[in-house]
Design a protein around this nucleic acid. Structure first.
Lengths: 221, 221
DNA sequence: ATAATTTTTTACGCATGAGTAGATTGCATG
DNA sequence: CATGCAATCTACTCATGCGTAAAAAATTAT
């Protein structure tokens, strides 16, 4: 009651006076509102999963942080497994998108690879990306686990493709594609474990630096 | 009963005829036998934790695999938290030992660093090392968690020390010590997630290869 | 043999947390 | 106005799995 009244009230007082702020939400606005709530649940869930671990976080905990009750979560998502699957799917979606954008880029194969790696590292320091890394397959139900693995395979394939292309155009050194992919991915996954969201250096800076180390190697040139 | 009889019997038939195989175990033999059982529990536990995840593995499951019952585990270890702490402590112990051995080695700083990194990667593909990587701090009770973190800090310190020394003697390129340590560790931790114990390539070969990639970097030289 | 000790078992208590049933409220629509 | 739908809550059920009490079996010592 009080929340909704307060909302209407603040809209009426809004100085910006946008075109006709009708108090009657349209179909689309309602859909968006619902979607926003669903997203808020996922955001709270993923943050708590990252902080305390999936198994140490009950849906009651998540609900409490949002000031709601557990059945409300079930109103937006099927069950705990689905909550987790949704979280990792979002993270993996960001990575897949990064791969697409990198492939569409100008420059050498190395340029595209490096652009992808930086973004890859960055995503892995973000809420949903971190969850992808911190979540072991075993945590998910068999069905979801298969989906999770498929998405991860997709990323791996994308990364290998970028490496192969860069080897092919001579912009990076010839190498074992598979092991190189694992090496680069591993190094850029690990910040999900040690980097804290409010850390001194922003994720992008760290990602750039790590990629530079990976590009140059630690031996003197 | 049957197990112990079989054991005595085989000892008697043993062609090597060691000095006086008395059926009465000495104090030390008893201690060793107990220790062996404790170790067997930990070995079974760590393998199951790695396969199915800590939280998906009940102590009843572990007991079942050993053909014993849960209270027997409690006779050798305090509780589930302690089982896990013991497992990761063993893994981290192996890493600390590796650091000591590497430091005692001949050659340049780079030689010592590389030797350590190879062994580090190897351990992380072994039962206990894998568990170290796959276990999030949150899984442990606060007290054990602090111990776990302290040991991990120790490894990190060791690794940074090796890097600094190698930079100091000019055998590797100048670099940001902290980020380089994280990069190398991350890349060599990751096999704990993808490498399967019975994989085609043995851990040592993979570790060597990864270290080589990290040493050279992916850009052409 | 018998007593003491160690090892192992059976059979529980108990807390936690996933998931659900059903009531309640508010809004929308015929 | 009544009926339906959406969102939310309270108050449960129920399975799982940690940890334990207490007895039984085996082993060692007296």
């Amino acid at each position: 009651m009080s929340r909704l009244h307060a909302h209407k009230f603040s809209v009426n007082l809004n100085r910006t006076m946008q075109p006709a702020p009708s108090p009657f939400p349209t179909q689309e606005e309602k859909r968006a509102a619902r979607e926003a709530k669903r997203a808020a649940v996922l955001r709270a869930a993923v943050q708590m999963f990252n902080e305390r671990g999936f198994h140490m976080t009950s849906l009651d905990d998540v609900a409490a942080r949002l000031g709601i009750s557990k059945p409300t979560i079930y109103h937006y998502l099927g069950n705990k497994d689905q909550v987790l699957l949704e979280c990792v799917s979002i993270g993996l979606g960001q990575l897949i998108e990064a791969a697409e954008q990198s492939r569409a880029r100008e420059g050498t194969g190395a340029d595209r690879l490096i652009a992808f790696l930086i973004r890859y590292g960055e995503v892995n320091m973000d809420d949903f990306g971190r969850c992808v890394i911190r979540t072991g397959d075993e945590a998910l139900a068999p069905e979801s686990r298969e989906r999770f693995r498929a998405l991860k395979r997709q990323i791996d394939t994308d990364l290998r493709g970028l490496i192969e292309a860069a080897v092919a155009d001579g912009s990076i050194a010839p190498c074992d594609i598979k092991l190189t992919a694992f090496t680069l991915a591993g190094a850029l996954n690990w910040p999900a474990r040690w980097h804290e969201p409010q850390g001194a250096l922003p994720g992008e800076v760290i990602a750039r630096h790590l990629v530079d180390i990976l590009a140059q190697g630690f031996l003197p040139r």
